[in-house]
């Protein structure tokens, strides 16, 4: 079995395009795909007292929603192409998690879409694609 492709997927049209390209290449190279959906999260953010108490419940809800609204449709998109796919849902910083998985899974390539936000917004909030270009340990394919 060859080293997997990692696809950063958030349900946006751009990430659909990234997934499609990854599928096409995976079919050719008979490579498995790891489909990664990241829920943005910082352990250093501030929460109110009530948010603390409800956090565990919210997390379960968020995971269930991510599963049904984002990951399941993506898996349907892959099915029928004969590509092996394993979904991963994680909390954290998107680029960091993609890089971490690329290392631990010895991935061959990372595929992501970029959301096309303005340079200003990207500078303010950071962009996953731009960060990957700078720090990714493996080649990246970035789809517009």
């Amino acid at each position: 079995m060859s080293d997997p492709f990692i696809v950063g997927y958030d349900g946006s049209p751009a990430s659909d395009r990234a997934l499609d390209v990854a599928i096409a290449q995976a079919v050719e190279a008979s490579t498995p795909i790891i489909l990664v959906h990241v829920l943005e999260w910082s352990p250093y953010s501030f929460l109110t007292q009530e948010e603390l108490a409800e956090r565990h419940r919210r997390r379960k809800e968020e995971l269930a929603r991510a599963e049904s609204a984002v990951v399941t449709p993506a898996l349907e998109r892959v099915s029928g192409h004969g590509v092996e796919v394993s979904p991963v849902i994680r909390y954290g910083h998107s680029a960091e998690i993609l890089v971490e998985l690329a290392k631990s899974e010895k991935a061959r390539q990372i595929f992501v879409g970029r959301d096309g936000s303005s340079a200003f917004k990207a500078r303010l909030f950071g962009s996953t694609a731009a960060t990957l270009v700078q720090v990714s340990p493996v080649p990246c394919t970035i789809l517009p």
Partner: peptide, 23 residues
């Protein structure tokens, strides 16, 4: 967060509990 299990990300961290209690 040196001892925090990465699989628990998304749950209340020690930092958050401390920050909220302090506020």
């Amino acid at each position: 967060g040196d001892y925090s299990d990465p699989n628990d990300a998304g749950e209340v961290s020690h930092f958050q509990a401390l920050a909220t209690a302090l506020s």
